[in-house]
Amino acid sequence: MSAVVRDGVEDLEIGLLLEALFRRYHYDFRSYARASIKRRLVQARDQLGFSSISALQDSLLHEPTTLSRLLGYLTVQVSEMFRDPSYFRALREKVLPHLRTYPSLKVWVAGCSHGEELYSLAILFREEGLEERTIFYATDINPAALQAAEAGVYPLDQVKKFTANHQKSGGRSSLSDYYTADYGRAIFDKSLRSRVVFSDHSLVTDAVFGEMHLISCRNVLIYFDRALQDRAIGLLRDSLARKGFLGLGSKESLRFSAHAAAFLEFSREDKIYQRQDA
Rank of each mutant, 00 (worst) to 15 (best):
S68L: 12
G249Q: 04
K271T: 05
E252W: 04
D277Q: 12
Q274A: 02
D177C: 11
V208E: 12
I37S: 09
R242Y: 14
S216R: 01
L71V: 06
D277W: 09
R45Q: 10
G184Y: 10
S68A: 14
L124D: 02
P97Y: 04
H213Q: 13
G111W: 01
L264D: 14
A151F: 08
D270N: 07
S202P: 06
S52N: 06
T205G: 00
G234P: 00
H26G: 05
C217H: 04
D46V: 13
V220Y: 01
G111C: 01
K168A: 15
Q43W: 11
F162I: 10
I53A: 04
V4S: 09
Y102W: 12
R23K: 15
D277N: 03
A232M: 09
L264N: 00
L214T: 07
K271Y: 01
Y223H: 10
L146E: 08
Y137R: 04
S79A: 08
I233G: 06
I233S: 03
I37G: 00
R275Y: 09
Y87A: 06
A181I: 08
T65D: 14
Y223K: 05
Y32E: 07
K106E: 02
L175Q: 07
D189W: 13
F245M: 06
S194W: 11
L105Q: 10
R242I: 06
I222C: 05
R231M: 01
E10H: 01
S113P: 04
S216Y: 02
E211I: 14
D200C: 12
K271P: 00
S79C: 08
I37D: 00
S104L: 13
S216D: 00
L56G: 08
T163L: 03
R218G: 01
G171C: 10
L70R: 02
K243R: 15
L246P: 03
E10I: 12
T180A: 07
F245S: 01
L124R: 00
R133F: 14
S267R: 11
W108L: 04
S36N: 13
R255W: 09
A55K: 06
L228S: 01
H98F: 15
S250G: 08
R89Y: 13
Y178K: 08
D84Q: 08
F125K: 07
I14V: 03
F162G: 04
Q158D: 13
K38Y: 11
A241G: 12
G184K: 10
P143M: 12
L18D: 00
V5D: 12
I53V: 15
A232Q: 00
A145P: 07
P64A: 12
L91M: 10
I135G: 06
E131N: 12
S86D: 09
R83M: 03
L118K: 02
L71S: 04
I14Y: 06
Q229W: 11
G115C: 03
L18V: 01
D140E: 07
S257L: 04
H62N: 15
L124K: 00
K106S: 06
R218E: 05
L235H: 05
S257Q: 03
M1H: 11
P64V: 12
F198C: 09
E211F: 14
S59M: 02
